[in-house]
Design a protein around this nucleic acid. Structure first.
Length: 435
RNA sequence: GGCCCCGUCGUCCAGAGGCCUAGGACGCUUGGUUUUCAACCAAGAAACGCCGGUUCGAAUCCGGUCGGGGCUGCCA
């Protein structure tokens, strides 16, 4: 059994293609079959090396690996632009055998009328097309480059693909491919036309729905495993109302024939939720590494040793508060060696005489505190609340603004602890002076 | 226009004739917890497009209809 994904490097790897790749991959892995990657770059005008690279990196990032194909075996090319001679030769042969004819320099496949083309689709069942509805189609352009129909079909034959699972947008082209295969006296493989992914407007997902490339989700701080999981539940389910599951569970339960026939709308909101779940499930070291890398990337610089120490303290409580990796920097920026400013507007909302006294008192207490740890910080701050007969929210919110700069922050005591004693005292002092 | 595909809560998925007064998840609303935010807990609103038929019985089968989508390129 051999399946394939054959993207065109005419754009970045988008999630529709990635999901098709994923389903092919799952099926191949489930049945110990082969999964092949081919580069369908017959459109020389629009294909670029950069897009090709983007596609390969996207698949690798998702952990969708291939056993055969592009870059795996240097003795054979899995890039269609390297095989133009072969396609041209076959097109000529088809002309000689009467299956095709020349038309203004191009070569068209001659569609015999009154025929029924039948195939059984894994998802849609019996498919019948009347050849009267199909016009003669170009297989070789006048510049001698092949069209998709020719090149793709020849490659599927040459590389012995046994199941072609691709997007439903190609469903109506399948009879053309079968006609070419029969003219070439080749074995017709199985077909499976996967439902399309739609945008929120119910139309085929494309550029006009914004950036839907896999790399853009990576850049947004989406985890590869979350992306993989989310894509897999679009049109398919492992059963038992399972939604978050490991790859081996997906492989174990996957079947192309259980993929739903109807299109699914790609919902970023649910992806974000799932990504949050995955972030929370990361172990400490994995998360720490990803977090530090992300912060460093977003700052565009290395993270200093002292910053790293502070960040590592706060990381466990930040981990539970993220939807994407990119949310981290905003939450820990009060710990960085960067200019620190307080949001004055937020402060005006919590300021009062009580609050001013509270800040002064805890500052003094911090100065005297011998063991600056979580427990002492919390008990002192609560004690001081009682002294002034204040509610927790009243004193804590003010402290939070003074220390982190905003009303929304990681938990207060952890924030103070990670910031350290001298900086905490300094920020409280600064706040008090500017009251 | 022609050909083809599709049709369960706003969205994703479960449901393969009686277990369905249709289940789970995201999102939403309300309440709880709470030092903010998140997380978490509890409750709630929310769907079988419509009309016929088959059947003792249909979300599930059939037909039609309506609606959505894809293709109809010397794009893929």
């Amino acid at each position: 059994m051999k399946l394939r994904i054959a993207p065109s490097p005419t754009g970045e790897l988008h999630i529709g293609n990635a999901r098709t790749a994923l389903f092919n991959w799952l099926y191949a892995r489930k049945h110990n079959g082969k999964f092949l990657l081919r580069i369908d770059d017959t459109d020389v005008e629009r294909s670029t090396p950069e897009f090709q690279q983007n596609i390969i990196e996207g698949l690798e990032w998702l952990g969708i690996d291939w056993d055969e194909g592009f870059d795996k075996d240097s003795s054979i090319s899995y890039k269609q632009s390297d095989r133009f001679e072969r396609y041209e030769k076959i097109a000529q042969d088809l002309v000689e055998e009467g299956f095709a004819y020349e038309d203004d320099g191009a070569i068209r496949f001659k569609v015999k009328g009154d025929q029924n083309i039948y195939f059984e689709d894994y998802i849609r069942g019996d498919m019948n097309f009347n050849t009267n509805d199909i016009e003669d189609f170009v297989i070789l352009r006048s510049d001698k480059t092949p069209t998709y129909h020719l090149a793709s079909t020849i490659d599927d034959i040459d590389y012995e693909i046994s199941i072609i699972a691709r997007g439903e947008d190609i469903l109506s082209s399948t009879p053309k491919h079968i006609m070419i295969m029969k003219a070439l006296d080749a074995k017709v493989p199985d077909f499976c036309h996967l439902p399309l992914l739609f945008g929120p407007d119910g139309k085929k997902l494309s550029k006009r729905h914004g950036d839907t490339s896999v790399s853009s989700f990576k850049d947004q701080g989406i985890l590869a495993n979350a992306m993989f999981n989310y894509m897999s539940i679009l049109g398919w389910s492992p059963g038992d109302d399972l939604e978050i599951f490991e790859r081996d569970v997906a492989i174990e339960n996957f079947d192309l024939k259980n993929v739903l026939p109807n299109p699914a709308i790609f919902d970023t909101v649910k992806l974000l939720w799932m990504n949050g779940q995955y972030i929370r499930n990361l172990n400490k070291d994995e998360f720490s590494k990803k977090a530090i890398d992300n912060i460093s990337a977003s700052l565009g610089r290395e993270i200093f040793k002292e910053e790293l120490e502070r960040i590592n303290i706060i990381l466990p409580v930040v981990q539970e508060r993220l939807e994407t990796l990119n949310d981290i920097t905003d939450q820990i920026k009060f710990l960085l060696d960067e200019p620190f400013t307080v949001n004055k507007e937020e402060w005006n909302g919590v300021n009062s005489e009580n609050v001013q006294n509270y800040l002064k008192n805890i500052r003094e207490n911090f100065k005297l505190m011998e063991k600056f740890d979580l427990q002492n910080i919390e008990s002192m701050m609560r004690e001081e609340l009682k002294e002034l007969n204040m509610k927790p929210k009243e004193g804590f919110q003010a402290t939070r603004i003074a220390v982190t700069g905003t009303k929304i922050s990681p938990p207060l005591f952890e924030s103070i602890f990670s910031l350290g004693k001298p900086a905490t005292i300094a920020r409280l002092a600064e706040m008090i002076e500017n009251l």
